[in-house]
Design a protein around this nucleic acid. Structure first.
Lengths: 269, 269
DNA sequence: CGCCGACTTGAGCAATCTCAATCATGGTGG
DNA sequence: CCACCATGATTGAGATTGCTCAAGTCGGCG
């Protein structure tokens, strides 16, 4: 992969530690590894073994670039361990976090044919291992395997649901609420009092929630009053149910669709 | 369709003009009508004619509810004329606009089987006509037709791209920029000076851009200095290129992914 | 004419960003 | 071992953006 000089490439200078396209330790892999990709959970073994030729596993270091927005789609990749962040780069050069992928998740979109272009860039967050299979082979099998089609369609639906949820959050919740929701999503189910480690640093969490780092820090401080302790990356939640209850109280008005009928009726009352 | 009393149903009281599930003038339709759905643009006639049984066309009035978030997916629908808005309702009852569909566009997601649930509500904006086909029939044909699968996957990709763009906009642009971008997207291609009509009222545009109506009004006022005149729903753009150039100047810092390498290099210089 | 809905405008306030300083931590070299 | 530095995180102060509430305008329409 070459380093281009288009406007979209701003921020990836040669010799920089971050953003380079260097990868280490690429090795071959078999069909067994493919099962680790959630996409293939319900795909038949026959299709999987046909897919498994030319499958490779690569180890990435923090900041390694997996692919760049605007470049051609050569592989379909999955996270085996670690985290990979997806970003969009505006013509101005500004980068916006679109999502973060972890164990078993697909990185980017499933290629359906030749001549596809990456709509986002993908970069490793810390050390990570990814599984890559050649896009042309995948696209070919996609045409022949209804099971694979079904898997891709299911995955797309899940992606869309996730993105819709994100848009809803950005439009209708303030920073405190988004952080509360994020923390609740990390709490292990079952326990009301819990303790866990943040999956990545606060800078990345801030980007994920769509706020500045300082704002996130203040939001964490505000949640302390609701039973959320943090020391660096460790979080302790006094009571998950209590935090969930306080949810709307952290709220703001939000961006509605004009006035809802509920509001209208309320006015009339 | 019944009116439930769950929290999510707030705002849909019986007897309200808006939000009711009443529809008028449902009539049968043939395979010819199906071609108007963009999803089917490249689907073979055989599949299409098999899909066409039980296809119906319905006329909606402003505020008519097509389906409600949380209800079962009974049909796959397309806009034939007019606009349909997609909204999510939070447990608190607050509604957030997720998207707006117009001519030929699919409303919601393609059903893949039984037991699917609508993740959003759909409501007519002004008068509209929609085409509906039974979900079970569509799901069955989806299993048998690779062409249909390909169409659905292509559509999902487009949806994802649209949603990603929206998230990027919400995270990295301020209200002025989002409005400028929206206006630019409405300008007919080719002409530098142009004049057109806004597709729907400003309340809905505000919800789409994720701001309050008052904020939108002020954003319009600010764009006047950049050659954008508006009188009610009519817009005149002095120079599309000039507006596009002014784009970043309307900007703010935005929510980046930590500091980009570009910024780091800039500091060093 | 008078009302209604859509839109605009103004004033104040709340949330968030910006800039800057500080602090803790871990690693590095002396 | 300690001084030093880089990084991440926190905190403070002030500016900006966008929201809230409220009033006012405007164009249709009965």
């Amino acid at each position: 992969m070459t380093i281009d000089t288009s406007p979209a490439a701003q921020g990836y200078g040669a010799g920089q530690r971050k953003g380079r396209a260097v990868r280490r330790a690429s090795r071959a892999a078999g069909p067994g590894e493919l099962r680790k990709a959630l996409l293939f959970a319900e795909v038949d073994g026959g299709t999987l073994s046909r897919l498994s030729a030319d499958v490779r596993i690569e180890s990435l270091q923090d900041g390694d670039l997996l692919f760049r927005q605007g470049s051609g789609v050569a592989h379909l990749s999955f996270v085996l361990s670690g985290y990979v962040k997806l970003m969009r780069t505006a013509p101005s050069g500004r980068q916006t976090l679109i999502g973060i992928r972890s164990d078993g998740e697909m990185i980017g979109e499933a290629p359906m044919g030749a001549d596809e272009i990456h709509t986002v860039s993908a970069e490793s967050v810390g050390a990570a291992r990814v599984l890559k299979l050649p896009a042309p082979r995948f696209a070919r099998l996609l045409k022949e395997s209804p099971a694979l089609c079904a898997a891709v369609m299911r995955d797309s639906k899940a992606s869309i649901a996730r993105l819709v949820g994100e848009i809803e959050a950005l439009k209708s919740q303030n920073a405190d609420q988004r952080l509360a929701h994020f923390i609740l999503s990390l709490c292990p189910p079952g326990e009301d009092r819990c303790r866990f480690r943040l999956p990545y640093d606060k800078r990345l969490i801030a980007a994920r929630l769509g706020v500045k780092q300082e704002t996130l820090s203040r939001a964490f401080a505000k949640l302390r009053a609701h039973g959320v302790r943090t020391e660096t990356r460790n979080v302790q939640v006094e009571s998950v149910t209590h935090l969930a209850d306080q949810y709307d109280r952290l709220g703001r008005a939000g961006i509605a669709v004009g006035r809802s009928d509920a509001e209208k009726r309320h006015d009339a009352a």
